[in-house]
């Protein structure tokens, strides 16, 4: 009796220690990401001769380094929000299609097809964007510019394929699967009793969805959209290949302007000096903080929902 009790504690303690340690390592990595980005960004920020937050140009490799996050952060936020506006309605449609419209047998397979969109590596989307979508978008962009120039977004004198709009469409394709997948899960959890009650009272399928599925799924859709937003902001390679990498702030999404924090890191890293690398790390820190806030917000909404569902 005594022997077995002794053996138990001897094996259990190291194992418990190792698994707890692994969890703590994970927390430590998250902390270390923040710490090391700050440590390596500070020297470059001190060498900066202009204001990091308001400066638009990016010349950290010069003798008098000048760089700022303004234009890059603007481009990141604008392209991500455009992508979100394009992707969310389609994603909700896809999620409804799989959860409430498609035949039961087909639904799983079709869901897998949408998940495949997420499996395509981002560099492949970038290549597809440069080789196919950029030339393809010239026509529709001309059309928008000719007839809808009164909307400021579509204004401007110059229309190009390598534009903010093209980059946003590629981003939208890339974030669609994650928004669709989470919305689908939430829609499937909608209370069956309410759905059946609505149908029994004579509601059409759309009325049933509007009255019971969508209100139930709203927090899920919001957090899914926020996760998609975070994904779009961090997306690098596809955007780096498509955006024209200029340093200005312009709302004209059809013109030859646009850049993002992540794209600038990918494009600028090759020729960066020590200060240049520090500057890129500083911009990465800003990106990290923005995505951290967006993701934490999304997760908190989901977590609250979970307790909701369990209580009900």
């Amino acid at each position: 009796m005594r022997r077995s009790a002794f053996r138990r504690s001897r094996g259990d303690v190291p194992f418990r220690f190792a698994s707890t340690g692994a969890g703590i390592v994970l927390l430590a990595i998250m902390a270390a990401i923040g710490v090391f980005l700050v440590v390596k960004a500070v020297p470059a920020l001190q060498a900066n001769t202009s204001n990091f937050l308001t400066e638009k140009t990016w010349t950290p490799n010069a003798v008098e380094p000048q760089f700022g996050i303004a234009a890059l952060a603007f481009g990141t936020v604008l392209s991500s929000f455009l992508a979100l506006i394009i992707a969310t309605p389609v994603a909700i449609g896809v999620a409804l299609f799989i959860s409430h419209y498609a035949p039961r047998r087909l639904a799983a397979v079709l869901g897998y097809v949408v998940d495949l969109l997420a499996a395509v590596p981002s560099v492949v989307y970038g290549l597809w964007g440069v080789a196919f979508l950029v030339p393809f978008m010239r026509g529709p962009s001309e059309f928008l510019n000719t007839y809808f120039a009164w909307i400021p977004l579509f204004g401007g004198d110059q229309v190009v394929g390598k534009s903010m709009l093209t980059a946003s469409i590629v981003l939208a394709i890339m974030i669609l699967p994650i928004i669709a997948a989470i919305s689908r899960e939430v829609f499937l959890q909608a209370p069956k009793m309410q759905e059946e009650a609505a149908l029994a009272l004579g509601a059409t399928r759309w009325e049933m969805i509007r009255m019971s599925v969508l209100p139930f799924g709203r927090p899920g859709i919001i957090s899914a959209a926020m996760l998609g937003l975070g994904r779009a902001m961090g997306e690098t390679i596809a955007v780096a290949l498509i955006l024209p990498a200029t340093f200005g702030i312009s709302f004209q999404i059809l013109g030859p302007n646009g850049n993002s924090i992540a794209a600038n890191i990918a494009n600028g890293f090759g020729e960066a000096t020590t200060i240049g690398r520090g500057a890129l790390i500083a911009s990465g820190l800003v990106l990290f903080l923005i995505t951290l806030v967006v993701n934490m917000g999304a997760r908190m909404i989901i977590a609250r929902r979970k307790e909701f569902a369990r209580a009900a």
Partner: peptide
């Protein structure tokens, strides 16, 4: 933080 880590951009 595992959830938050899922959202860390690859470039970061």
């Amino acid at each position: 933080f595992v959830d938050v880590m899922t959202g860390v951009p690859s470039v970061v």
